[in-house]
Amino acid sequence: MKKVLITGAAGFLGSHLCDRFIKEGYYVIAMDNLITGDLKNIEHLFPLEQFEFQHHDVSKFVHIPGKLDYILHFASPASPIDYLKIPIETLKVGSLGTLNLLGLAKEKNARILVASTSEVYGDPLVHPQSEEYYGNVSPIGPRGVYDEAKRFMESITMAYHRFHNVDTRIVRIFNTYGSRMRLNDGRVVPAFMGQALRGEDLTVFGDGSQTRSFCYIDDQVEGIYRLLKSDYTDPVNIGNPHETTIKEFAEEIIKLTGTDQKIIYKPLPKDDPLQRQPDISKAKEILGWQPQVSRAEGIKKVYEYFKSLSPEELQKKEHRDFSANK
Protein backbone atom coordinates (compact mmCIF):
# COMPACT_ATOMS: atom_id res chain seq x y z
CA MET A 1 0.00 0.00 0.00
CA LYS A 2 1.51 3.32 -1.07
CA LYS A 3 1.74 6.02 1.60
CA VAL A 4 0.91 9.71 1.11
CA LEU A 5 1.34 12.65 3.50
CA ILE A 6 -1.26 15.39 3.03
CA THR A 7 -0.65 18.64 4.90
CA GLY A 8 -3.51 21.05 5.56
CA ALA A 9 -5.59 17.87 5.62
CA ALA A 10 -8.39 19.20 7.83
CA GLY A 11 -9.06 22.13 5.51
CA PHE A 12 -11.55 22.39 2.67
CA LEU A 13 -9.35 21.16 -0.17
CA GLY A 14 -7.06 18.97 1.94
CA SER A 15 -9.97 16.95 3.35
CA HIS A 16 -11.32 16.21 -0.13
CA LEU A 17 -7.84 15.06 -1.17
CA CYS A 18 -7.79 12.71 1.83
CA ASP A 19 -11.07 11.22 0.58
CA ARG A 20 -9.68 10.76 -2.92
CA PHE A 21 -6.47 9.03 -1.85
CA ILE A 22 -8.33 6.73 0.53
CA LYS A 23 -10.61 5.83 -2.37
CA GLU A 24 -7.55 5.14 -4.55
CA GLY A 25 -6.22 2.66 -1.96
CA TYR A 26 -3.46 4.73 -0.33
CA TYR A 27 -2.40 4.85 3.31
CA VAL A 28 -3.06 8.50 4.19
CA ILE A 29 -1.18 10.48 6.85
CA ALA A 30 -3.18 13.65 7.43
CA MET A 31 -1.31 16.55 9.05
CA ASP A 32 -2.77 19.85 10.25
CA ASN A 33 -2.19 22.33 13.08
CA LEU A 34 -5.93 23.20 13.04
CA ILE A 35 -5.41 26.97 12.94
CA THR A 36 -7.89 27.22 10.07
CA GLY A 37 -8.71 23.54 9.53
CA ASP A 38 -11.45 21.61 11.33
CA LEU A 39 -11.38 17.96 12.41
CA LYS A 40 -15.04 17.55 11.47
CA ASN A 41 -13.92 17.61 7.82
CA ILE A 42 -12.01 14.34 8.25
CA GLU A 43 -13.61 12.70 11.28
CA HIS A 44 -15.40 10.22 9.01
CA LEU A 45 -11.98 8.80 8.11
CA PHE A 46 -10.76 8.23 11.68
CA PRO A 47 -12.11 4.64 11.98
CA LEU A 48 -10.17 3.51 8.89
CA GLU A 49 -7.00 1.47 9.37
CA GLN A 50 -5.35 3.14 6.38
CA PHE A 51 -5.77 6.64 7.83
CA GLU A 52 -3.95 8.49 10.60
CA PHE A 53 -4.01 12.09 11.79
CA GLN A 54 -1.07 14.07 13.16
CA HIS A 55 -1.68 17.41 14.87
CA HIS A 56 1.46 19.26 13.81
CA ASP A 57 2.71 22.58 12.41
CA VAL A 58 4.75 21.93 9.27
CA SER A 59 6.68 25.17 9.87
CA LYS A 60 8.50 23.09 12.48
CA PHE A 61 10.58 19.99 11.71
CA VAL A 62 8.52 17.23 10.08
CA HIS A 63 9.37 13.58 10.75
CA ILE A 64 7.54 10.61 9.26
CA PRO A 65 8.93 7.15 10.14
CA GLY A 66 9.27 4.51 7.45
CA LYS A 67 8.72 4.84 3.74
CA LEU A 68 6.78 7.63 2.10
CA ASP A 69 5.78 7.70 -1.55
CA TYR A 70 4.05 11.05 -1.99
CA ILE A 71 3.70 14.41 -0.21
CA LEU A 72 0.94 16.92 -0.98
CA HIS A 73 1.65 20.27 0.66
CA PHE A 74 -1.69 22.06 1.11
CA ALA A 75 -1.07 23.65 4.52
CA SER A 76 -1.76 27.38 4.36
CA PRO A 77 -4.46 29.88 5.25
CA ALA A 78 -6.41 30.36 2.03
CA SER A 79 -8.87 33.15 2.72
CA PRO A 80 -8.11 36.89 3.02
CA ILE A 81 -9.72 37.02 6.48
CA ASP A 82 -7.30 34.35 7.72
CA TYR A 83 -4.05 35.45 6.15
CA LEU A 84 -4.61 39.09 7.09
CA LYS A 85 -5.12 38.00 10.72
CA ILE A 86 -2.11 35.68 10.76
CA PRO A 87 0.35 37.15 8.23
CA ILE A 88 3.50 35.77 9.87
CA GLU A 89 2.10 32.24 10.05
CA THR A 90 1.07 32.53 6.40
CA LEU A 91 4.60 33.46 5.37
CA LYS A 92 6.12 30.75 7.56
CA VAL A 93 4.02 27.91 6.21
CA GLY A 94 4.82 28.94 2.63
CA SER A 95 8.55 29.25 3.32
CA LEU A 96 9.68 27.19 6.33
CA GLY A 97 6.88 24.68 5.86
CA THR A 98 7.75 24.14 2.21
CA LEU A 99 11.47 23.91 3.06
CA ASN A 100 10.78 21.23 5.70
CA LEU A 101 8.61 19.17 3.37
CA LEU A 102 11.05 19.41 0.47
CA GLY A 103 13.73 18.15 2.86
CA LEU A 104 11.45 15.27 3.82
CA ALA A 105 10.80 14.47 0.15
CA LYS A 106 14.58 14.43 -0.46
CA GLU A 107 15.17 12.15 2.53
CA LYS A 108 12.38 9.72 1.57
CA ASN A 109 12.91 9.91 -2.20
CA ALA A 110 9.23 10.84 -2.38
CA ARG A 111 7.39 12.83 -5.04
CA ILE A 112 6.06 16.13 -3.68
CA LEU A 113 3.26 18.29 -5.08
CA VAL A 114 2.98 21.81 -3.68
CA ALA A 115 -0.19 23.90 -3.78
CA SER A 116 0.46 27.27 -5.32
CA THR A 117 -2.46 29.45 -6.40
CA SER A 118 -3.54 32.02 -8.95
CA GLU A 119 -2.40 34.65 -6.43
CA VAL A 120 1.10 34.33 -7.90
CA TYR A 121 -0.31 36.38 -10.79
CA GLY A 122 -1.41 39.19 -8.45
CA ASP A 123 -3.68 41.74 -10.13
CA PRO A 124 -2.89 40.50 -13.64
CA LEU A 125 -2.14 42.70 -16.61
CA VAL A 126 -2.50 39.69 -18.93
CA HIS A 127 -5.84 37.98 -19.46
CA PRO A 128 -6.44 35.05 -19.24
CA GLN A 129 -3.42 34.02 -17.17
CA SER A 130 -1.09 31.39 -18.61
CA GLU A 131 1.74 29.73 -16.72
CA GLU A 132 4.27 31.84 -18.64
CA TYR A 133 2.92 35.07 -17.14
CA TYR A 134 5.14 36.32 -14.28
CA GLY A 135 2.45 38.33 -12.52
CA ASN A 136 1.81 41.81 -11.14
CA VAL A 137 2.28 41.49 -7.38
CA SER A 138 2.94 44.02 -4.62
CA PRO A 139 5.35 42.40 -2.14
CA ILE A 140 4.57 45.03 0.53
CA GLY A 141 0.78 45.24 0.16
CA PRO A 142 -1.57 43.54 2.65
CA ARG A 143 -2.06 40.55 0.32
CA GLY A 144 1.69 40.23 -0.22
CA VAL A 145 2.02 37.85 2.73
CA TYR A 146 0.00 35.25 0.82
CA ASP A 147 1.08 36.10 -2.73
CA GLU A 148 4.79 36.12 -1.95
CA ALA A 149 4.54 33.00 0.22
CA LYS A 150 3.23 31.14 -2.82
CA ARG A 151 5.82 32.66 -5.15
CA PHE A 152 8.62 31.68 -2.76
CA MET A 153 7.09 28.21 -2.50
CA GLU A 154 7.40 27.81 -6.26
CA SER A 155 10.98 29.15 -6.30
CA ILE A 156 12.32 26.86 -3.59
CA THR A 157 10.46 23.87 -5.05
CA MET A 158 12.16 24.39 -8.41
CA ALA A 159 15.51 24.92 -6.65
CA TYR A 160 15.19 21.54 -4.89
CA HIS A 161 14.12 19.98 -8.17
CA ARG A 162 17.11 21.35 -10.08
CA PHE A 163 19.80 21.17 -7.38
CA HIS A 164 18.78 18.07 -5.41
CA ASN A 165 16.84 16.23 -8.15
CA VAL A 166 13.74 16.07 -5.94
CA ASP A 167 10.70 14.83 -7.86
CA THR A 168 8.39 17.86 -7.70
CA ARG A 169 5.03 19.06 -9.05
CA ILE A 170 3.45 22.53 -8.76
CA VAL A 171 -0.27 23.17 -9.11
CA ARG A 172 -1.62 26.71 -9.47
CA ILE A 173 -5.13 26.54 -8.05
CA PHE A 174 -7.80 29.00 -9.19
CA ASN A 175 -10.96 29.79 -7.18
CA THR A 176 -12.44 26.49 -6.01
CA TYR A 177 -15.70 25.88 -4.18
CA GLY A 178 -17.62 22.98 -2.68
CA SER A 179 -18.77 21.34 0.55
CA ARG A 180 -16.76 21.89 3.76
CA MET A 181 -15.98 25.52 3.03
CA ARG A 182 -16.35 27.76 6.10
CA LEU A 183 -19.29 30.12 5.75
CA ASN A 184 -17.50 33.16 7.14
CA ASP A 185 -13.98 32.79 5.79
CA GLY A 186 -14.29 35.73 3.39
CA ARG A 187 -14.24 33.80 0.13
CA VAL A 188 -16.91 34.68 -2.41
CA VAL A 189 -19.00 31.50 -2.62
CA PRO A 190 -19.50 30.79 1.12
CA ALA A 191 -19.86 34.50 1.88
CA PHE A 192 -22.72 34.92 -0.58
CA MET A 193 -24.32 31.61 0.44
CA GLY A 194 -24.21 32.49 4.12
CA GLN A 195 -25.69 35.94 3.58
CA ALA A 196 -28.47 34.60 1.36
CA LEU A 197 -29.41 31.80 3.78
CA ARG A 198 -29.46 34.22 6.71
CA GLY A 199 -31.64 36.67 4.82
CA GLU A 200 -28.94 39.35 4.67
CA ASP A 201 -28.11 41.60 1.74
CA LEU A 202 -25.19 40.34 -0.36
CA THR A 203 -21.98 42.37 0.01
CA VAL A 204 -20.03 43.12 -3.15
CA PHE A 205 -16.70 44.90 -2.87
CA GLY A 206 -16.01 47.47 -5.56
CA ASP A 207 -18.55 47.94 -8.33
CA GLY A 208 -18.86 44.19 -8.96
CA SER A 209 -17.23 44.31 -12.39
CA GLN A 210 -14.17 42.35 -11.21
CA THR A 211 -14.17 38.77 -12.46
CA ARG A 212 -13.57 35.31 -11.02
CA SER A 213 -13.61 31.80 -12.47
CA PHE A 214 -15.03 29.17 -10.10
CA CYS A 215 -14.00 25.50 -10.22
CA TYR A 216 -16.00 22.79 -8.45
CA ILE A 217 -14.10 20.74 -5.88
CA ASP A 218 -14.45 17.39 -7.69
CA ASP A 219 -12.89 18.84 -10.83
CA GLN A 220 -10.08 20.45 -8.84
CA VAL A 221 -9.21 17.22 -7.03
CA GLU A 222 -9.19 15.30 -10.31
CA GLY A 223 -6.80 17.82 -11.86
CA ILE A 224 -4.46 17.69 -8.87
CA TYR A 225 -4.46 13.89 -8.88
CA ARG A 226 -3.62 13.77 -12.59
CA LEU A 227 -0.81 16.29 -12.17
CA LEU A 228 0.71 14.29 -9.31
CA LYS A 229 0.72 11.18 -11.49
CA SER A 230 2.12 12.98 -14.54
CA ASP A 231 5.76 13.49 -15.51
CA TYR A 232 5.40 17.28 -15.83
CA THR A 233 7.45 19.37 -13.39
CA ASP A 234 6.64 23.00 -14.32
CA PRO A 235 3.59 24.78 -12.82
CA VAL A 236 0.14 23.91 -14.19
CA ASN A 237 -3.05 25.97 -13.86
CA ILE A 238 -6.02 23.99 -12.57
CA GLY A 239 -9.25 25.95 -12.65
CA ASN A 240 -12.44 26.59 -14.58
CA PRO A 241 -11.98 29.12 -17.43
CA HIS A 242 -15.68 30.09 -17.42
CA GLU A 243 -15.44 33.68 -16.17
CA THR A 244 -18.15 35.74 -14.48
CA THR A 245 -18.33 39.13 -12.78
CA ILE A 246 -18.88 39.24 -9.02
CA LYS A 247 -22.11 41.21 -9.56
CA GLU A 248 -23.45 38.59 -11.98
CA PHE A 249 -22.51 35.85 -9.52
CA ALA A 250 -24.31 37.60 -6.66
CA GLU A 251 -27.41 37.81 -8.85
CA GLU A 252 -27.12 34.07 -9.59
CA ILE A 253 -27.07 33.29 -5.87
CA ILE A 254 -30.12 35.46 -5.18
CA LYS A 255 -31.99 33.72 -8.01
CA LEU A 256 -30.93 30.26 -6.83
CA THR A 257 -31.93 30.82 -3.21
CA GLY A 258 -35.23 32.43 -4.16
CA THR A 259 -34.65 35.32 -1.79
CA ASP A 260 -35.24 39.01 -2.35
CA GLN A 261 -32.04 40.46 -0.91
CA LYS A 262 -30.39 43.48 -2.39
CA ILE A 263 -26.75 43.78 -3.38
CA ILE A 264 -24.86 46.34 -1.33
CA TYR A 265 -21.51 47.74 -2.40
CA LYS A 266 -18.44 48.43 -0.26
CA PRO A 267 -14.96 49.76 -1.14
CA LEU A 268 -12.65 47.35 -2.94
CA PRO A 269 -9.81 46.13 -0.66
CA LYS A 270 -6.27 47.17 -1.58
CA ASP A 271 -4.59 44.99 -4.24
CA ASP A 272 -7.74 42.90 -4.79
CA PRO A 273 -7.36 41.43 -8.30
CA LEU A 274 -9.75 42.80 -10.90
CA GLN A 275 -9.53 39.78 -13.21
CA ARG A 276 -9.02 36.10 -12.62
CA GLN A 277 -9.33 33.52 -15.40
CA PRO A 278 -7.04 30.55 -16.03
CA ASP A 279 -5.59 29.54 -19.34
CA ILE A 280 -5.84 25.73 -18.98
CA SER A 281 -4.24 24.81 -22.31
CA LYS A 282 -1.42 22.94 -20.55
CA ALA A 283 -3.79 20.98 -18.31
CA LYS A 284 -5.77 19.92 -21.38
CA GLU A 285 -2.69 18.94 -23.38
CA ILE A 286 -0.53 17.36 -20.66
CA LEU A 287 -3.12 15.93 -18.27
CA GLY A 288 -6.11 15.44 -20.56
CA TRP A 289 -8.03 17.43 -17.96
CA GLN A 290 -10.74 20.04 -18.12
CA PRO A 291 -13.66 20.86 -15.80
CA GLN A 292 -16.75 18.68 -16.11
CA VAL A 293 -19.10 20.37 -13.62
CA SER A 294 -20.86 23.52 -14.79
CA ARG A 295 -21.16 26.46 -12.40
CA ALA A 296 -24.95 26.12 -12.33
CA GLU A 297 -24.67 22.44 -11.36
CA GLY A 298 -21.88 22.97 -8.84
CA ILE A 299 -23.50 25.95 -7.13
CA LYS A 300 -26.73 23.98 -6.75
CA LYS A 301 -24.80 21.20 -4.96
CA VAL A 302 -23.07 23.68 -2.67
CA TYR A 303 -26.37 25.40 -1.92
CA GLU A 304 -27.85 22.07 -0.81
CA TYR A 305 -24.81 21.51 1.42
CA PHE A 306 -25.04 24.90 3.13
CA LYS A 307 -28.82 24.63 3.38
CA SER A 308 -28.36 21.38 5.36
CA LEU A 309 -26.39 23.17 8.08
CA SER A 310 -28.10 23.83 11.39
CA PRO A 311 -29.43 27.33 12.18
CA GLU A 312 -26.67 27.61 14.80
CA GLU A 313 -23.98 26.86 12.20
CA LEU A 314 -25.48 29.37 9.76
CA GLN A 315 -25.45 32.12 12.38
CA LYS A 316 -22.02 31.26 13.79
CA LYS A 317 -19.34 33.86 13.25
CA GLU A 318 -15.62 33.11 13.11
CA HIS A 319 -14.07 33.39 16.56
CA ARG A 320 -10.73 31.68 16.04
CA ASP A 321 -8.00 32.48 18.51
CA PHE A 322 -4.93 33.59 16.57
CA SER A 323 -3.32 35.30 19.58
CA ALA A 324 -0.52 32.72 19.92
CA ASN A 325 0.41 32.80 16.25
CA LYS A 326 2.67 35.84 16.14
Rank of each mutant, 00 (worst) to 15 (best):
H16T: 00
L84V: 06
T168P: 09
S179Y: 12
S213D: 07
L34H: 11
M31C: 12
L45T: 05
P273A: 10
I299C: 02
K300I: 02
G144H: 04
L101N: 09
I238L: 07
G208V: 09
I224N: 10
T98F: 05
E49F: 02
F21M: 12
M193C: 10
K3M: 11
I246W: 14
F152G: 01
Y146G: 02
L202K: 09
E132G: 13
H164D: 08
S76L: 05
G11M: 03
H73Y: 04
H242N: 15
F192D: 03
G8L: 09
D185M: 11
V189H: 03
F214G: 02
K108W: 06
F51Q: 09
Y216E: 07
E252G: 01
E52L: 13
Q277H: 05
D218A: 04
E119G: 09
F12R: 00
I140A: 09
V137K: 09
D260M: 06
K270A: 10
F322L: 14
L125A: 12
R20N: 13
V28P: 15
Q220V: 00
K67W: 01
L227I: 13
G298M: 10
P267R: 09
E252C: 08
P190I: 03
Y83F: 15
Q275G: 00
V221D: 01
L72I: 15
A149E: 00
K229C: 11
G14P: 00
K2I: 04
M153K: 00
G8M: 08
Y160D: 02
N184D: 15
T257Q: 06
E312T: 14
H73K: 04
S294A: 05
A191D: 15
T117D: 01
E248S: 15
V114M: 02
P80G: 13
S294K: 08
D57G: 12
K60A: 14
S209Q: 13
W289A: 03
T7N: 12
H56G: 10
G223S: 08
I88C: 01
L45E: 06
K92W: 05
E148Y: 08
V62M: 13
D201K: 04
G103Y: 04
N325I: 07
K85H: 13
D279V: 06
A110S: 08
L228H: 10
N237C: 10
D123G: 01
V166G: 03
I254V: 11
D207E: 06
Q220H: 01
L48R: 15
M193S: 08
D201A: 04
P47E: 10
M153F: 00
E200M: 08
G141M: 09
I224E: 14
S281E: 11
F205E: 11
Y146R: 04
C18P: 13
H55G: 05
Y177C: 07
K108L: 05
H161C: 04
F61K: 15
E200P: 02
G223E: 09
K316G: 02
K282I: 14
L101Y: 07
F205L: 12
G194K: 03
D57C: 14
F163L: 11
